[in-house]
């Protein structure tokens, strides 16, 4: 409770200071936004539905891109982690490629796919896939061998071994891989949307810049923070805690 009280006081104080700076009118409002202006822009964005449309377009892109990365990344990670040859070859390639910031794939992507959604989705996939695959690989490689031994001993082989032992045993790492992958995908998406303008949250941000509308720009940023927090804190953090509890890592 005390923690929450402290937080409320902190944010209320921040709001007051921000309000006062705005009231002093030292800088023009396209330079320093005001709380009231941001609030109005936020409500405008909601009422003219541009925030909804933008959010929906962005979520659709990340949904497709992240879905592809999660599917391919987890499968690729498990296969690579279980095969020494693939681990030494493909594994090193995946780690190497990961050092490339994902937005660097955009020029290549535009040449391949043209100026369209597919290009941005490709960047999102490249951003998330590598992270998910590499974390899954290390997760699979560190499965306690005795689980595999016990499973085989009781008659689990091939596909059964995969679904009843390998995936559940590596699940804590797979989930942290998926969580990491999400934040990579989210960044890749924004970078892509900022550079190449089509409907989406990135485009709303750029629109704010073009119109010198600082209040609207901040309002969009708040929406981005909100979406990021929802997924990171609510979806993945809870998933992670649930799994860790079950495994007995946390109580």
């Amino acid at each position: 409770m005390k923690r929450w009280m402290n937080r409320i006081i902190f944010y209320a104080g921040l709001l007051v200071v921000w309000f006062l700076i705005g009231e002093l009118k030292i800088w023009p409002d396209y330079f320093v936004p005001t709380p009231v202006g941001v609030w109005q822009s936020f409500m405008d964005g909601l009422s003219d539905r541009s925030f909804f449309i933008g959010t929906l377009a962005s979520l659709k892109r990340i949904g497709i891109g992240y879905g592809i990365s999660a599917g391919i990344g987890v499968i690729l990670g498990i296969i690579t982690g279980r095969n020494q040859f693939l681990d030494e070859t493909l594994g090193s390639l995946l780690t190497g490629l990961q050092s490339l910031p994902s937005v660097c794939w955009l020029p290549l992507s535009i040449l391949w796919f043209g100026l369209n959604d597919a290009a941005i989705i490709f960047v999102v996939v490249m951003g998330a896939l590598l992270a998910i695959a590499t974390v899954t690989i290390s997760g699979v490689k560190t499965i306690t061998p005795i689980y595999i031994k016990a499973g085989k001993n009781m008659g689990a082989n091939g596909f059964k071994l995969l679904t009843t032992i390998l995936i559940p045993a590596a699940l804590p790492s797979i989930i942290s891989g998926l969580k990491q992958g999400w934040s990579f995908a989210w960044r890749a998406l924004m970078a892509g949307e900022l550079l190449y303008v089509s409907i989406g949250l990135g485009q709303l941000l750029m629109l704010g810049r073009e119109l010198n509308d600082m209040n609207r720009l901040i309002a969009v940023m708040l929406v981005l923070i909100f979406i990021g927090l929802v997924f990171d804190r609510l979806v993945f953090a809870n998933l992670e805690i649930a799994v860790r509890r079950r495994w007995g890592y946390e109580h």
Binding site: A150, N153, G155, R246
Partner: peptide, 16 residues
């Protein structure tokens, strides 16, 4: 497999 069953020193039970 499945007919000669091992019981290990450390627990090989599945935590999940």
């Amino acid at each position: 497999q499945g007919n000669r069953l091992l019981i290990f020193q450390e627990s090989a039970l599945f935590p999940w």
